[in-house]
Design a protein around this nucleic acid. Structure first.
Lengths: 131, 131
DNA sequence: CCTTGACCTTCCTGTAACTAGAACCCCTAT
DNA sequence: ATAGGGGTTCTAGTTACAGGAAGGTCAAGG
């Protein structure tokens, strides 16, 4: 399979695939005589793995770690679970932050009548006039 | 006030202040004879504004917009409210995504015993073995 | 007067994870 | 032969700065 077919099947763009190769997240594939990349089913499977992991918000560095654990038949499952738990903690943290911001913005927005008059509690608050 | 004092008072680093100047988010301040930047109270107030808005997750581009609205005494409050509502919608969207990811990861983590044995449903799932 | 240390200046590089685009080559079908 | 839709490499841009180098400035102390 050449890169375009792999992109279509995995949902990872050709650009991204080349990028992943450039940072050594995936091995360089075989080439045809004319230089086209040729991917095996195994390569495709790995790109699926990457796609799913990225979709769950793991950074490329974390994906690299997960991939290497995936390819190590003897690693402890605790290691994998540790990465996932760390990611979960980050997510909880991020959600809290966003909820706090949301509450603030909601309050501000509700206090602003939002019509064609110029006075606006939102800007007043940002300017610190409420302190 | 020179840049260090302003940084200490506003919580915006000197690096960031210079950066904001370079992208024209804030005007270039006066300089002393030796070239040091000199900030007025008004400049400090604007940096406070920026700091708060950034803390609420507005992008620098959005902050620029908010600032220009802040400085326009005749704009309609609806414009400001529109920006805030848009940001709120983004936040809601982001929170949903994160909650969905969290649910998935929580399920995966719970199914992984996380000890020194190698079998791990997390990796199996990422690899697509559960499809 | 000179030094020391903290501060300031500009400029360059690096970050994350790609995307866009240029310039060019290859392959297949008509 | 040519047209299209692949593919190739390379460079630059994105966001919002942080780090660091090389060098000028300022106030205090010996």
């Amino acid at each position: 399979m050449n890169i375009g077919e792999v992109a279509a099947e995995t949902g990872v763009t050709a650009k991204s695939i080349r990028y992943y190769e450039s940072i050594n997240l995936i091995p360089a594939p075989a080439r045809t005589e004319s230089g086209y990349r040729q991917y095996s089913d195994r390569d495709v499977q790995i790109l699926h793995f990457i796609k799913r992991a990225r979709g769950l918000g793991f950074s490329v560095a974390e994906v690299a770690e997960l991939l290497s654990l995936y390819q190590d038949r003897d690693r402890a499952s605790a290691e994998v679970k540790g990465i996932v738990e760390a990611r979960l903690a980050e997510i909880d943290q991020k959600i809290s932050e966003l909820e706090s911001i949301r509450a603030t913005l909601r309050t501000l927005a509700n206090r602003c009548h939002g019509d064609d008059r110029p006075d606006c509690p939102i800007l007043d608050d940002l300017a610190g006039l409420t302190n």
